[in-house]
C-alpha cells in the first residue's frame, strides 16, 4: 500500500463519521493486488470440492407440495404501440421509394384482364404496396409524404381492410363498363379474418379459453379454504412431474389435452404455518413448500365436477388479472415465473 493512501486512511479514521460513505468505502477497500494475492491462497482450499452433505438429524421439516402452472399461450400477435405502427408505416413508405420498381410484365401479361386491373388499382393508390395508403414516392410533389394528423394509414385494422378490399374487388369505378371480349377473372372466395376481440372478451368470461387471445392465460383454482391458487397437492411417494400429471388428471378431468414442459420446477412458494404441528414421526412441521411445474393446455377445458382435490371454482386469468386474485405473499413468489404477455 502506498504512503498516500496510508495517510488518507489515518485521516479517515480520525475524521470518524464526518467522512462520506462512498469515500470511506473507497479508502477501506482492498486494492486489486491484495485481492489477487488472497484469491491465489483461496484457490487451493476450494479446489478440493466437498459435496453438500445432508443434515444429520433434521428436527424441523416442511411438507412438499407439487403445483401446476397450466397456461394457454398467446394465440394472436399483440397490438402494436402507436409509435411502433407509425414507425413501420414510415419504413414501408421509405422502402416504396428506395426499392427497385415493381417488374410489372413479369407478373402480368400485357392486355390481360389482370393487367388492366393492376393499372386501375395503381391509378388509385399510386404505389404497388396495397396497405400503405395513397402514396407517391417520385415526382415534383414526392416531398409531401407525411401522414397528416388523424390519418388512419398506420392503423393495423385499416391496413387489413385495404388488403381485403384489394383481394375482393377489381378496382373498377361505379358505372365503368367492361371491354368486350375480355375474360372475367375468377376471384378466390375467402373468409374474413375473425375479430381480434371475441365474444368472451366482451362478456369478460373468465371461464373461457377463447378470451384475451393476445395474452397468456393461467389456470387458477379456488381451493378448500377459499383461496385462489394454482392447482397443487401434497406429494405422496412420487416424483414432482408424476405428481403434476396426477394433479392435472385428478382436478381438471380427462377432457383436457395438456403437455408438461420439462420435469423441473420453474418456481417455488413457501408457506409457514402460524402454529407448528408435531408429526407422528417426531418431527415438527413448520410449513409447506410448493414447487411449480410448467404445463401447457393444447385443447379441451377444465371440468371440476369430479375433482378429487376439492377445488371449488376455476378461472383463466392473464398475469395482471391474476395479481388481483391471489394473496400478496403468494404473488411475490409467483410473479417472476409468469410471462408478461
Amino acid at each position: 500500500m502506498n504512503a498516500g493512501k496510508q495517510t488518507t486512511r489515518q485521516l479517515a479514521s480520525r475524521a470518524g463519521r464526518s467522512i462520506c460513505r462512498s469515500c470511506r468505502e473507497y479508502i477501506s477497500r482492498n486494492t486489486y493486488a491484495t485481492a489477487a494475492a488472497a484469491a491465489v491462497q483461496a484457490e487451493d482450499q476450494v479446489a478440493q470440492h466437498i459435496p453438500p452433505v445432508a443434515q444429520a438429524a433434521p428436527s424441523t421439516v416442511y411438507a412438499v407440495n407439487a403445483g401446476v402452472v397450466l397456461s394457454r399461450p398467446p394465440q394472436i400477435t399483440r397490438d402494436l404501440h402507436p409509435f411502433e405502427s407509425a414507425f413501420f408505416l414510415y419504413q414501408r413508405r421509405l422502402n416504396e421509394r428506395l426499392a427497385l420498381p415493381f417488374t410489372r410484365y413479369f407478373y402480368f401479361k400485357k392486355r390481360t384482364p389482370a393487367d388492366l386491373e393492376w393499372k386501375r388499382k395503381m391509378k388509385q393508390r399510386l404505389t404497388p404496396a396495397r396497405d400503405i395508403g395513397r402514396y407517391k414516392g417520385y415526382g415534383d410533389e414526392a416531398w409531401n409524404d407525411e401522414v397528416l394528423v388523424g390519418a388512419k394509414e398506420s392503423d393495423f385494422e385499416w391496413q387489413v381492410e385495404r388488403l381485403l378490399e384489394d383481394a375482393g374487388t377489381d378496382g373498377k369505378e361505379v358505372g365503368e363498363v367492361e371491354q368486350k371480349g375480355m375474360k372475367k377473372i375468377e376471384r378466390e372466395v375467402f373468409d374474413k379474418p375473425t375479430p381480434r376481440r371475441t365474444e368472451a372478451d366482451e362478456k369478460n368470461d373468465t371461464k373461457s379459453l377463447n378470451r384475451a387471445l393476445q395474452r397468456t392465460l393461467y389456470l387458477l383454482v379456488k381451493n378448500k379454504d377459499g383461496l385462489w391458487q394454482f392447482p397443487e397437492d401434497r406429494l405422496n411417494e412420487e416424483n414432482l412431474h408424476g405428481a403434476a400429471s396426477r394433479i392435472l388428471s385428478q382436478s381438471g378431468g380427462p377432457n383436457m389435452n395438456t403437455w408438461l414442459v420439462g420435469h423441473i420446477p420453474i418456481g417455488q412458494h413457501q408457506h409457514n404455518h402460524t402454529d407448528t404441528t408435531k408429526l407422528p414421526s417426531g418431527l415438527t412441521e413448520h410449513g409447506v413448500k410448493t414447487f411449480f411445474l410448467k404445463a401447457r393446455i393444447m385443447a379441451g377445458q377444465v371440468n371440476l365436477k369430479e375433482s378429487k382435490l376439492g377445488f371449488q371454482d376455476f378461472k383463466w386469468l392473464a398475469k395482471d388479472e391474476l395479481k388481483k386474485e391471489v394473496d400478496g405473499s403468494y404473488w411475490t413468489s409467483v410473479k417472476n415465473m409468469l410471462a408478461e404477455r
Partner: peptide, 24 residues
Amino acid sequence: PGPFDLPRLEQTYQSTIASDLLAL
C-alpha cells in the same frame, strides 16, 4: 429501410418458445 413489421414467429418465440426451451 426496415423493419417493416413485427413478425408473428418472432412474437411467438418471445412469448412462448424461449421460456419453454429454458424450462426444457
